[in-house]
C-alpha cells in the first residue's frame, strides 16, 4: 500500500499493469517512459527473457508533481502475462494501490483476457484484497487491429461492474496517458479517503 513519508514529504504509490501475455503492458510503460520529461522519471527496469518477454516485472518510477506540498511518486509495475508465471504475478501484486488491466481487443484473445481477469481477481483475493474495492481501470488495447471486438462485447465479458475503461493503441500512445491519469486519480482519492 501507499507509503507516506512525512519527513521527506513524499507519497509513494504502487500501480500494477495486469493482463494476458502480449497484450501491451510493457508497451504502455515504454510509451510513458518515452514521453515523460527526463526530470520526472527514473530509469525503466525490464526483467525480460532474451526474446523480450517479461520474466519477472518491468518497473518505472514517475514523479509527477506536488500535492499539498507532498511529492507524489508513482511506481508502475507490469506483471509477466504468460500463464505459467503465476507465482511471480502474485508477488508483484503485494502492496498494490491500483490496478490497470490491459486487455487485448482481438477476438482470438478474448479467452486469454477472461482467464487473466479471473486470475487477477483470484490472486488479489489470496492476499486479502477485493478487486471491487480497489482503484481499477480497464484498457482495451490494439483497437487498430482488424479483428478487434466491439467495445460493447468487451465490456460485457470483462467489465460487468462498469469501471472506467479506455480504448488504446499503445505503441502510438493512444489512450495510454488517459489510462494512467484515471488510475492515478483514483489512487490519490483513495489516499484522501484513508486520511
Amino acid at each position: 500500500m501507499s507509503f507516506i513519508n512525512y519527513s521527506a514529504r513524499e507519497i509513494n504509490c504502487k500501480i500494477v499493469f495486469y493482463g494476458p501475455g502480449l497484450g501491451g503492458k510493457t508497451t504502455n510503460l515504454q510509451y510513458i517512459y518515452k514521453k515523460t520529461n527526463p526530470d520526472s522519471k527514473g530509469k525503466m527496469i525490464s526483467l525480460a527473457t532474451e526474446s523480450e518477454r517479461t520474466l519477472f516485472f518491468d518497473f518505472l518510477p514517475l514523479a509527477l508533481g506536488n500535492i499539498k506540498g507532498f511529492k507524489v511518486r508513482f511506481h508502475l509495475y507490469t506483471v509477466p502475462g504468460q500463464v505459467f508465471y503465476d507465482a511471480s504475478r502474485k508477488l508483484i501484486l503485494k502492496g498494490v494501490d491500483g490496478v490497470v488491466f490491459v486487455a487485448d481487443s482481438q477476438a482470438e484473445r478474448m479467452e486469454a483476457d477472461i482467464e487473466s481477469m479471473d486470475n487477477l481477481r483470484k490472486n488479489l483475493q489470496e492476499q486479502g484484497y477485493n478487486l471491487d474495492n480497489l482503484p481499477f481501470v480497464i484498457q482495451y488495447n490494439k483497437r487498430d487491429l482488424p479483428s478487434a471486438v466491439s467495445m460493447d462485447e468487451l465490456n460485457q465479458a470483462l467489465n460487468p461492474k462498469g469501471v472506467p475503461c479506455f480504448e488504446a493503441v499503445a505503441p502510438q500512445g493512444q489512450g495510454v496517458f488517459e489510462t494512467l491519469k484515471e488510475i492515478a486519480k483514483q489512487v490519490i482519492l483513495e489516499i484522501k479517503k484513508g486520511s
Binding site: 500500500m1 501507499s2 507509503f3 507516506i4 513519508n5 512525512y6 502492496g95 492476499q127 484484497y129
Partner: peptide, 13 residues
C-alpha cells in the same frame, strides 16, 4: 485490506 500503508513520521525517520 491486508497490508496497511506505511506511514513514516519525522521522529522515527
Amino acid at each position: 485490506m491486508p497490508d496497511p500503508g506505511l506511514i513514516m513520521y519525522e521522529e522515527e525517520f
